[in-house]
Computed example of a mutant assay.
Amino acid sequence: MFVNITELRWVTFTLLGVPGLERFHSVISAPFLVMFLCSVIGNPLIVLIILSDGGLHSPMYVFLSLLVITDSMLSLCIAPQMLAVLWMNSRVVVFSRCVIQMYFVHFLTYMESGVLVAMAFDRYVAICQPLRYSAILTGPVITRISLVLVLRGVFMIGPCFYLVARLPYCGHEVISKSYCDHMSMAEASCGNTTINGIYGLVQLILTMAFNISVVILSYRFIIKAVLKLPSKEARSKAFGTCSSHVCVMSFFYIPGSFTLLAYRFGKRIPPSIHSLLSLTYLQMPPMMNPLVYGVRTRQIRDRVWKLFRKGKN
C-alpha cells in the first residue's frame, strides 16, 4: 500500500491528556512539572560537572553523560506537549508533529535502555577485569558502542513511520494520552492495526529479551567476582560501585515493565490509569537519574557542593 502524503497533511489528532480526570488536569500536572524541572536542571548539571572535571573522564562517566543527555532530550520531547494539554487545553496536533514526537519518544526510550545495558557491561569489566579495564573500554570502543545504540534505535523505530502513515484516518483521531506514540496513533485510525500490534510486540520482546539477558549475565559474573573478594570492606566497595546503576535500572525497567504489561494485557484498566502510568514511566527516570548519581557518587556530590558553596559566597 502506497502512502498518500498529501492526505496525511490534513490529519489531526486530539490528545485527551488524562481522560476522565479533565477537571483535575492542573493538579495532575504539578508532580510532572517537578519531574520535568528536576530533569532539565539536574541532567545538564551532571554533564557540565563531568566535562569540567578531568577525574571523571572515565568510560563509566562517558556512559553516564550519554544517559543524562538522553534523559534531558526525552523530557523535552514529552513535557512541553504534556503541559500544553494539561494547562492550556491545547489538544490538537497535526500528523507531522505527532509522528515526529512518536519517533523521538520511542527512539530515546530505546537509547536509554541501551545505555543502561552498556553501563552494566562497564561495571562487569571494571569488577571482573579491573586490570584490563582501560584496555577494553577504549575511546574507539565506547564510540562504536554508542553508534550501535543510535543505529539500533533508528532501525527499530524507522518502520513505525510507514506503519502509521499507511493507515486510513477518518476524521475522529483521538489519543487517550498527552503525547503521541506508535500504538496510540495506530489505534486512532479506522483501519486494521494488526500489523502495527505484531511489529510493536515483536520489537518489544526482542529488545527487552536482549537487554535483560545482558544485564542479568553481567551481574551474575559481577556477584560471583565480588563474593570471591577477601575482605568485607572490599566486597562492600565493589557492590557500592554498582548500586547507583542498579537503582537507575530499577526506576526504568520496573515501571516500564508494569506499564507495558498493563497496556498490552490490562484491557479493563481505565484509560486514565494507562495515561498516568505511561507519563510516570517516561518522566520518572529522567528525574531520578541525576538525583541518584548526584547523591551516591562522591566525586559528583563533592563538585555540586563546591558549586553551591561558591554560589553562596
Rank of each mutant, 00 (worst) to 15 (best):
L37R: 11
C38M: 14
C38T: 09
C38Y: 03
S39A: 15
V40L: 08
I41L: 09
I41V: 12
I41M: 12
N43L: 00
L45Y: 07
L45I: 11
I46C: 10
I46W: 09
V47M: 12
L48Q: 13
I50V: 15
S52E: 15
G54T: 08
H57Q: 15
H57A: 12
H57R: 15
S58R: 14
L66K: 09
L66T: 11
V68C: 12
T70C: 13
T70I: 04
T70V: 12
M73Q: 11
L74Q: 14
A79R: 02
A79I: 00
P80W: 01
P80I: 01
Q81S: 13
M82V: 13
M82P: 08
M82L: 15
V85N: 04
W87E: 08
W87R: 11
M88E: 10
M88G: 12
N89M: 07
S90N: 13
V92P: 03
V92I: 15
V93P: 05
V93I: 14
S96K: 12
R97F: 00
C98D: 02
V99T: 12
Q101W: 06
Y103M: 07
F104A: 05
F107E: 01
F107T: 01
T109G: 14
Y110M: 04
M111R: 14
E112D: 07
S113F: 14
G114V: 09
L116C: 13
V117H: 00
M119E: 13
A120D: 03
F121L: 14
R123N: 04
Y124N: 05
A126H: 07
A126D: 06
C128V: 11
C128N: 08
C128Q: 06
C128L: 06
Q129G: 00
L131W: 06
L131Y: 05
S134V: 01
L137E: 03
T138P: 02
V141G: 03
I142L: 15
T143Y: 12
T143D: 12
T143M: 13
R144A: 11
R144D: 02
S146F: 11
L147V: 08
L149I: 13
V150A: 12
L151H: 05
R152K: 06
R152G: 03
R152W: 05
G153D: 04
G153A: 08
G153L: 09
V154C: 04
V154Y: 14
I157T: 10
I157N: 05
G158E: 10
P159H: 09
C160M: 14
C160G: 01
